[in-house]
Design a protein around this nucleic acid. Structure first.
Lengths: 155, 155
DNA sequence: CGCTATCGAGTTGCGCACAACTGAATTGTG
DNA sequence: CACAATTCAGTTGTGCGCAACTCGATAGCG
């Protein structure tokens, strides 16, 4: 039982954890002037991209469930950045749309990436490569999910 | 103002964010049988490594402050896995030590890395490489911290 | 020795993440 | 049409992460 396993193990997961929080801190400072938290910024990103989206669709993009999104969207609505209305086609779902103020915020947000990118000290190629590896890793983890569940699926 | 910036920007930070949560979910399942959450597991890791440590030292290793650690350590103490006592040398600081039960847990924890490592679908070299890149990125982000502050530093 | 500044753990308050649940709307089936 | 299963947003409860703060202990300085 090599004890270095517990150290190595520490590293990859912890490295991700620490990096995620370091980015978060970076964004926190920058987003403060927009009045957004980082998760709220992520929601606005997908809304800017798609104009309007159901809560479920937002959750699929960001890997978040309604337990996280419902209160978050309520705060965005209270801040006047989005409106929510029940879909006429399906009364179960709620459509989220940016308001004029929410759309206007995109202009300010557009200045962020350059600052963040500079802070990474990496060039575009390195960032892209790293991003792709991490995204593949996430996909693998999601797919594996731990073979504890699923009785005899694995089609 | 190329709009793809906002998408690309989304990617690297979000990729980290998502990967971190995917790992978290993986560990959550595995750690459930040890009665630990993922952050509690990280704390136990550094304690197993150092036998005893002040709250501040734990925080330095994990990039966490007392606001996070104090309640977490209280829960670990309530679970009978650690004891806390004020340092005799410096009454301000609190020394944290694993109990016998806390130390015993290390045996079970030692089985985790292999499962996690398998779930990544990567070999040791790839994991190490990725980990090092991410760690370097974190260090860069921490050092930069956003050039909004610091009036005329940039030595 | 006194006095101030700093350090250290702890608390409070807020927002996120997630499991477990509720309740209304919809779909599928007979 | 009726009725069971599913889908969807929302709520509740717990724990993490962090800023801002409290308060006692320590260190530094005159």
């Amino acid at each position: 039982m090599d004890p270095s396993w517990l150290l190595l193990d520490n590293q990859i997961c912890f490295a991700l954890h620490a990096a995620s929080r370091a980015f978060n801190a970076l964004y926190r400072d920058a987003l403060q002037e927009l009045g957004l938290t980082y998760p709220q910024y992520l929601v606005m990103l997908v809304l800017w991209e798609h104009q309007e989206l159901g809560v479920k669709q937002i959750g699929e993009q960001l890997r978040l469930d309604s337990g996280t999104l419902s209160p978050l969207l309520k705060r965005l609505e209270a801040a006047g950045l989005v409106v929510r209305e029940r879909s006429a086609q399906d009364e179960r779902s709620v459509i989220v749309r940016p308001t004029a103020a929410g759309t206007a915020l995109r202009e300010q947000a557009a200045r962020l990436p350059a600052r963040i990118s500079a802070a990474t000290g990496l060039d575009l190629g390195e960032i892209t490569d790293l991003r792709e590896r991490i995204t593949r890793l996430t996909a693998t983890l999601d797919a594996t999910a731990l073979p504890t569940v699923s009785p005899a699926d694995c089609g």
